[in-house]
Computed example of a mutant assay.
Amino acid sequence: MSLDPNSPKPVHRSVLLNEVLSWLPPREGAVWVDGTVGAGGHAAALATRVGATGRVIGLDRDPDMLVLAGQATSGLPVSLVQAPYSDLADVLYKMELDAVDGILLDLGLSSDQLAWAERGFSFAVDGPLDMRFDPNASLTAAEVVNTWKEEELANLFFEYGEERYSRRVAKRIVEGRRIVPITTTGRLAEIVRKSIPGKWGPIDPATRVFQALRIRVNDELDHLESILEQLPDLLRPGGRAVIISFHSLEDRRVKVAFRDDPNLKALTRKPVMASAEEMAVNPRARSAKLRVAERCPIQEDPPLPSYSRSKERRDDR
């Protein structure tokens, strides 16, 4: 898929935008990173606040999202790069930057990507079973569904989708693919729905399985763990990391990293949630959790005790 630069405006709404701006306060000359730039909503808002000497660097793995981001940030001090946020250190090195003042990650999936049936992210519209953020990546959801062993699928759905009926779903998938390969989102969703007993709640039964496949196809948790380890080296002292997650697998990792890294200070004891007003106009915000950490000052080596300094002077004689 290749978007026309004159294509319709994106449908995605930036979640917790006001909260992001309050935790990344305006500062002339600041350099911010939006590691999941998407349609560019957050990046555009940040770019209007850094002044003529500031800069926003936007990363995304999806080239089609970068087209939308380019539209949203046209004329603003924004540099767009196709790369996963876990490669931020390399991106900054090429830009001759040692560190930045703030890093924003809005994890998960864009509403625009869900709306593009040919990308295979959604069970609401039928499309090829793909789910790759980067169209050039090798692994697709179809390959996982049609080649992985039943036990491997069950473990995937349980660990990444937290699906309690993971073994039943995996068994039905293997039975179905023996008849004919499962190549569309519609057929996979139907198999999953028939595997889940009881009445449907407000969440479609296919949601958790699709989440698990998307996470695995794009190695989302690996990328997240990588950037969490790098944060202290990427942020200037006093710089902030703002991360928005949408499920417990992500939020738990962010919480632990912010709490346990001695070079970071967690500024949000509990995650910041969307207001009732925002959830009313943007249902996607209901599950959003925002956490913030600040890079601690770099600790210099403490001075030697007076007796040690005296000994050093005696040794120098």
Rank of each mutant, 00 (worst) to 15 (best):
S2Q: 14
P5C: 10
P10F: 10
R13Q: 15
L16S: 02
E19L: 05
R27P: 02
G41M: 08
A44L: 13
L46V: 13
I57M: 05
G58L: 01
R61W: 00
R61I: 05
P63S: 11
P63C: 04
D64R: 09
A69F: 08
A69P: 05
Q71H: 06
Q71G: 12
A72Q: 11
L76R: 13
V78M: 06
S79C: 02
S79W: 00
V81M: 06
V81K: 05
S86Q: 14
L88I: 11
L88S: 14
D90T: 15
Y93N: 13
S111A: 14
D112W: 12
L114E: 07
A115D: 14
A115W: 04
R119V: 04
S122E: 04
S122V: 07
A124H: 13
A124Y: 06
L139H: 10
T140D: 07
N146V: 09
T147E: 14
A154C: 12
E162S: 11
I191Y: 02
V192Q: 14
K194H: 13
K194V: 03
P197V: 06
G198I: 11
R208H: 03
A212E: 04
V217D: 00
L221T: 01
D222E: 15
I227R: 04
L235S: 04
F246V: 04
H247V: 09
E250P: 02
V272K: 07
E278M: 11
A280V: 02
A280Q: 09
V281T: 11
R286W: 05
A288I: 08
R291Q: 03
A293V: 13
R295D: 00
P303I: 03
P303A: 06
L304I: 07
Y307N: 12
R309K: 14
K311E: 11
R314D: 03
R317M: 12
